Each structure stands twice: as structure tokens, then as C-alpha cells.
Amino acid sequence: MTTSRAADPTTADPDSAFRELFEATYDDLLLFVERRAYHAVAEDVVAETFLIAWRRLDEVPKPLGEARAWLFTVARNVLHNRQRSDQRQQSLALRVLREPDAPNSTEADLAATRIDLMKAWQRLSSADQEVLTLTAIEDLTGPQAAQVLGISRPAFSLRLLRARRRLRQHLGQRPNSEATNVPAPAGPSRRGGSA
């Protein structure tokens, strides 16, 4: 194990300096993250950590021990950001579907609902997730969210309506659901319709 990444970091080319850092620290970094997350998540976190290291290579300390500590710090921050994002997505599904006059639920009911919501959320397209996230998590108004997506406000409202409908449909497809055989409403309620 070496104590420095390169004999003269000012003359070493960035590609070889990064390659040396990667080879010297990858296994340790992966084990560090795996102790805190699932393997599939750990690989993504390590990849993102090395991407940050590549972009900020001049900030990575030169001694290997200090570089490892720097990478561990970055990986820990990446993992925390990812966990916060996952929690926001779970909260989003609850906020989108919460009914104001729903009766108080037991903890078991809430846990089952959360699992169902996570499964339904995963079945949504990334476009639907983005539309719902902009309003429920990012707290943007309709016009602000439309601006972010580069579309008109009516187009955004339509996308949001459809994304909410699809999320409810996915929830309606869960097993043992009361709503399994009940079709989703097709649109606004009829007022004063003809006989």
C-alpha cells in the first residue's frame, strides 16, 4: 500500500492520477458504503462518489490515507442525499393521495399504505414521477412547474391530472383492495345531466 498517489502531483496527468486513486480505494470505499446500504445502492453511491472525485480531482488530498477519508466523506454525503430523496418520494405519494377527511388509521394500516404507495410509485413513468415531484415535493405552483418543464400551464395541469390518475390506478390494482373492481372516475362529476 502506497502512502501517496503520485510522486509529483503537479506533473502527473489527471487520468493516471485518478486511475491510481480509483484502484487504491475502490474496494475500501465499496465496503464502507455497503455497511450502510444495500449492495445495488452501494455501487451507485460509489460510482457517484468517484464522479465527484473526478470533477474535483484537484481538491482530493494527495496522501492516500487523506484521500480515502475525503472519499468516505463524499460517499457518506451522497448516501444521505439519496436517503433524503427516497424519503421525499415516499412522502410525495402520501401527500398526493391523502384525503383530508380520511379516518385515523392504525400503524399497520399506514405501513401497508406506504408499501402500496411505493409499489405504485415505482410503476409510474419517470415523466409522471417528475410532474408529481415538482408540485408535491418541490412545492412549486402550477405555473412554476410548467416553466421548469418548458410547457404551458394548461399542458402541465393536464399532465399532473393524468399522473395523479395513473398513480391512483396503480394503487387500485393492489391485491385485496376494495377498489379493485371499481373503475376510476372518468372525469368531473356530471351536473344536471339529462334523463
Rank of each mutant, 00 (worst) to 15 (best):
H80N: 14
H80M: 14
N81Y: 09
N81Q: 15
N81E: 15
R82S: 03
R82E: 04
Q83N: 15
Q83Y: 06
D86A: 15
D86L: 15
D86W: 15
Q87C: 13
Q87L: 15
R88V: 01
R88A: 15
Q89D: 13
Q90R: 00
Q90L: 11
Q90T: 10
S91E: 03
S91Y: 08
L92D: 06
L92C: 12
L92I: 08
A93I: 03
A93R: 02
L94V: 08
R95V: 04
R95K: 03
R95L: 12
V96L: 13
V96M: 02
V96W: 05
V96Y: 09
R98Q: 12
R98F: 13
R98S: 08
E99Q: 11
E99M: 11
E99T: 09
P100D: 10
P100N: 05
P100L: 05
P100Q: 07
D101Y: 07
D101N: 08
D101Q: 00
D101E: 09
A102M: 12
A102G: 09
A102Q: 02
A102P: 03
P103R: 00
P103F: 02
S105N: 03
S105F: 02
T106V: 01
E107R: 05
E107F: 07
E107G: 08
A108R: 09
D109G: 07
D109Q: 13
D109M: 09
L110F: 06
L110Y: 04
A112D: 14
T113M: 10
T113W: 02
R114C: 01
R114Q: 06
R114D: 06
R114L: 11
I115R: 06
I115H: 02
I115Y: 02
I115W: 08
D116N: 14
D116R: 10
L117P: 01
M118N: 08
M118Y: 09
